[in-house]
Write a protein that binds this DNA or RNA. Structure first.
Lengths: 121, 121
DNA sequence: TAATAAATGCAAATTATTTGCATACTATCA
DNA sequence: TGATAGTATGCAAATAATTTGCATTTATTA
């Protein structure tokens, strides 16, 4: 398995990005790389555990580097995705399900961010 | 002219189901209803706030009735989805993001459920 | 350098979902 | 009751996101 130029670029793009990116987003940033290659590379990184695939909403999957585990807050108006962290291990203690061994917690907050939103949709 | 026979059936199917269902799932249960109608009805119910659309994983969206707000635990082995409830209002108090007004919280736990899983994938 | 294996691009296929349009239904009103 | 209006439905086709097949290129290693 190789870390080729293309894959480096894709990883760099995700690394530099504040937000999670879709395959199409990455393709806009790196138009010289074929979209198919981007899909394949992303899948490759997901399997390698280097990035995470999110199905936040809508139809496109989003990808992001797991710099450190974190959660998401999504604005109901503008769909902006904000990252935040909490102490997951502490938090998990508050949950316990009979017959379920919790390995990981994902929190998604929904609400309104403080940007000017023109109109409700 | 809102709650038609077809829509009743779709709602009933979701109501009876233990799990969240995809449009295709519902269509299998109600093959006499056109898939397009199912999509349209689901969208209609989502807008009406009667059901919730989930993008848990994979490519298909899942729909479920919001009997009461709850969260999901997903088994990493068998993808079974377990529902659980917590006191959301209490929980939300533990989170606060500058510049973000939280309206809702969604928690997804991942882990292993206590069913016999034959082999890791 | 030759041999091997993986990576890439292109075109086409697949899957999930949506749209356009004609028809059918249902409630209301004259 | 019959006309009218507005929505619901089905069918076919369109779209969007993603995947696959296959030929070609590139990298890796003996």
């Amino acid at each position: 398995m190789r870390l080729t130029k293309h894959r480096q670029e894709i990883l760099d793009t995700l690394d530099k990005s504040e937000e999670a990116l879709s395959a199409a987003n990455i393709h806009s940033a790196l138009p010289h790389i074929n979209l198919v290659t981007i899909y394949r590379s992303l899948e490759y990184f997901v399997k390698a555990g280097e990035i995470k695939k999110l199905h936040l909403d809508g139809q496109e999957a989003q990808f992001e580097i797991q710099h450190e585990p974190h959660h998401h807050a999504i604005c109901n108006e503008c769909n902006k995705v904000i990252h935040f962290t909490v102490n997951d291990t502490e938090l998990i203690k508050e949950f316990s399900l009979p017959g379920f061994d919790i390995e990981n917690i994902e929190i998604t907050l929904r609400g309104i961010c403080n940007q000017k939103h023109s109109s409700k949709t």
